[in-house]
Computed example of a mutant assay.
Amino acid sequence: MFTGIIESVGEVKDLKKELNNLHITIACNFTNELKIDQSVAHNGVCLTVVNISGNQYTVTAIEETLIKTNLSDLKVSDSVNLERAMKLGDRLDGHIVQGHVDQTAICKNIQNEEGSWKYTFQYDSNLNNITIEKGSITVNGVSLTVVDSKKDMFSVAIIPYTYEHTNFKSFKIGTKVNLEFDVIGKYVTRLMRLN
C-alpha cells in the first residue's frame, strides 16, 4: 500500500531483458535502507526488490506489467518516481494507492499557469475507468487531485515542489504515463454497473 507521495526520483542505470521479463536497475538515495523482497513503487508500479548492490537495486517487471504500464519505454538514465510502501501508523498524506496501474495515458497539453503547471492527459475510456472533479488520481505514482474531468481526459495542477521533486519536469506533449484510478471510485463504478 502506498500514498502517492513521491519519496525520491531514481535514475535507471541498467535494463536487461530475460525472456518476457525486464530487470530494471535503479540508483536512488534510499537504496542503503532497502531489503530484498521489499515493495517499491516505480512510476506508480509496485515492484519487488530482487537485488541490491551499492547504491543501486534491481526489480523485475513481468510481461503483463510491461504491457499495461510505461515501464517498457524506459531507457538508461531516465528518471523514475519512487515511493516505498507506507508504514502502519504513518499519516496518509496522499490517498490510498495500491501500486497496481490501471492503464496508461498520453500527455496532451502542458500549460504554464505562472506559478504552477496544468497538465492534461487523455486515456482510453473503453476500459471503464473514470475521473471526477476534485477526485483523486495517481499519475506516475504521484497522488493528485483532478481539476477538469471529461469522459476520456482530465487535468491536474502541479505546484513547484511537485514539479521539482518528481519526473513531471521531464514530461512533454506525447509522454506516456501510468494511471491508477481512485480505488474507492473503482469499487463504486463496479457496483453501479452490476445494478
Rank of each mutant, 00 (worst) to 15 (best):
M1I: 12
K169S: 15
M86L: 15
A105H: 00
L92H: 02
T65G: 03
V177I: 12
S136W: 09
T120M: 04
K108I: 13
K17T: 12
K176E: 05
S125K: 14
D37C: 10
V146C: 13
S77M: 08
V146H: 14
T31G: 05
T48L: 02
S125E: 15
E64L: 06
L66P: 00
F171Y: 14
C107I: 15
T69P: 04
L92R: 06
I52W: 05
Y163M: 13
Q111D: 08
K108D: 02
K68C: 04
G135F: 08
N167S: 05
K17H: 02
N140Y: 06
A157N: 14
Y123W: 02
A41S: 09
V97F: 03
V183G: 07
V183D: 08
I26W: 01
K13V: 15
N32W: 01
V146N: 10
E18S: 13
R84P: 13
R91E: 14
N178K: 03
L82F: 00
I67C: 06
F121W: 09
V156N: 02
N195W: 01
K176Q: 13
M192A: 13
Y163E: 12
D90L: 03
H23R: 11
H23S: 15
Q122R: 12
V101I: 14
I36M: 08
N43L: 00
I173E: 08
K169A: 09
L74F: 03
G10C: 08
T162C: 10
T120E: 14
T131M: 04
T120L: 03
D152C: 06
N109Y: 07
V177S: 11
L194P: 00
S155E: 10
V156E: 00
Y163T: 10
N20K: 15
G44R: 03
V146Q: 11
A105M: 02
F30Y: 07
K35T: 14
V50D: 04
N29I: 04
K75P: 01
D124G: 06
V147C: 09
G99E: 02
N128I: 01
N32C: 11
T58K: 02
G44N: 12
V156F: 01
G44Y: 04
L34R: 05
L127W: 01
M153K: 07
N43I: 04
